[in-house]
């Protein structure tokens, strides 16, 4: 077993340090070392998207990033999407549109949807479907998820226009 590595990073806006083995994925570190279990493991090979986080603002599946790669980076997980002032409009839209059933894929979808709306505030339905194609949901058939993202997009633009 290799020695553990000391990693200095920023998670959800907070300066964070942790020790991890070089073989540990960022997902494993987030869940088992840092204690942020909101990112979920569905496949551990980058195909389900349940562990999606923002890595320096870029959408990644954290199971395919090593913990040591977080050195000096800025990581945003599902736990960092809401603020003390309240839920993010995407989170609110997921609740209001009943866009979750079992909820295991929900963190990944919300982080992925945020990555999209941060870049493209007004995506088409087809664009949303393409962007979210890396996130699997087995419960909803995606209908209400897509509607929730469209709803959030609309509401975020109304707020911006005010």
């Amino acid at each position: 077993m290799a020695d553990k590595v000391h990693v200095r990073t920023t998670i959800n806006g907070e300066a964070t340090e942790f020790l991890c083995e070089p073989r540990q994925s960022l997902l494993e570190v987030l869940r088992d070392v840092v204690g942020l279990t909101g990112s979920k493991e569905g496949c551990n090979d980058g195909n389900c998207g349940a562990c999606t986080v923002l890595f320096n603002g870029r959408m990644v599946t954290s199971c395919l990033v090593l913990g040591v790669e977080a050195e000096g980076k800025n990581v945003t997980t599902i736990e960092g999407i809401a603020t003390p002032a309240g839920l993010h409009p995407i989170q609110q839209a997921f609740l209001e549109n009943a866009a979750l059933q079992c909820g295991i894929c929900t963190p990944g979808f919300i982080v992925a949807a945020k990555a999209l709306l941060d870049r493209e505030p007004n995506p088409s339905e087809q664009r949303i479907r393409l962007w979210l194609a890396g996130n699997l949901c087995r419960c909803t058939g995606y209908d209400k998820i897509i509607r929730a993202v469209m709803d959030a997009s609309k509401k975020m633009q109304e707020v911006k226009a005010r």
């Binding site: 279990t37 736990e79 999407i81 839920l87 609740l95 009943a98 979750l100 909820g103 295991i104 963190p107």
Partner: peptide, 21 residues
């Protein structure tokens, strides 16, 4: 109505089986 367990699920706080520590 908004489901009662929804909030914990959209903020990543809901505890699933693998989350037990």
């Amino acid at each position: 109505p908004i489901r009662h367990d929804g909030l914990d699920k959209v903020i990543g706080r809901a505890k699933y089986a693998a989350d037990i520590q």
